[in-house]
Design a protein around this nucleic acid. Structure first.
Lengths: 129, 129
DNA sequence: TTGGATGCAAAATGTTTGCACCCGA
DNA sequence: TCGGGTGCAAACATTTTGCATCCAA
């Protein structure tokens, strides 16, 4: 499969299955993955594959409602405005984020290694009800 | 202590100690807390207190560098740059945030009701080792 | 063919729980 | 005083590891 070649790792049936599961379930726990594949994949293999995917940055680890979940890492590191009504996401232009980050750095002399920027509200379409 | 009264929970020596640690170490793991207090607080008590603080929303659980950390939940809605080494937080000036937000809104015609902005990295003091 | 990937079982870690005792309100 | 909080030990859950076998390249 393409993605395995891209990340230069061997393509196995187990890795393929787990990758598909993570793709199809946006935000899933180890326990849930295990429930889905316990007949075909050993739990220690699941841990090893998750570890591999994390190291290769194919997936990311997050906390949602105080629970650890895994989800596909977006290749392009984008930031979104999320509408609370229609739940659609709109990308905030990369240039805007960069300008903002540069300003923060310039003003403070920091080395920024990661950021998390998220806006929520009502989008223009939903504003007119 | 004030905060315990505010959240309507009993104030004990152990809770006070752990709250202070979380206050002073921005982003700390259970293991690190245990290292600091293992002489005076039992590990199961640490878990129980962390659980309590989470339920009362005194603290929040996050993932930084694929590790689960706990930190104080801010009441006043500020934005910070957090240093991964010394764990100090520096407030990002409100005006910077506002300018940024205004730009997003102007460019997209959104009504922003909430945002979450966070920068992490190495601060100027820690950069020189 | 062959080195890395997997399954299995066991070990190591991490988290929760029951209960007796303690202590803050 | 007394009900909730804590310490301790044991139970339970999660994660890692060693090794024999398997299989993708």
């Amino acid at each position: 499969m393409d993605i395995f070649r891209e990340y230069n790792i061997k393509c196995t049936k187990q890795r393929q299955i787990i990758l598909d599961i993570i793709k199809n379930n946006n935000g899933i726990t180890i326990k849930e993955i295990n429930e889905l594949v316990k007949k075909e994949i050993n739990l220690s293999t699941i841990y090893r594959i998750i570890e591999l995917f994390l190291n290769k940055e194919i997936i990311t680890k997050k906390i949602v409602d105080n629970v650890v979940i895994y989800e596909l890492k977006e290749k392009t590191h984008n930031h979104y405005f999320s509408c609370n009504k229609c739940h659609k996401k709109t990308i905030i232009p990369k240039k805007d984020i960069e300008n903002f980050e540069n300003k923060i750095i310039m003003n403070n002399d920091y080395e920024v290694t990661s950021h998390n920027i998220e806006f929520r509200g009502i989008c223009s379409k939903c504003k007119g009800k």
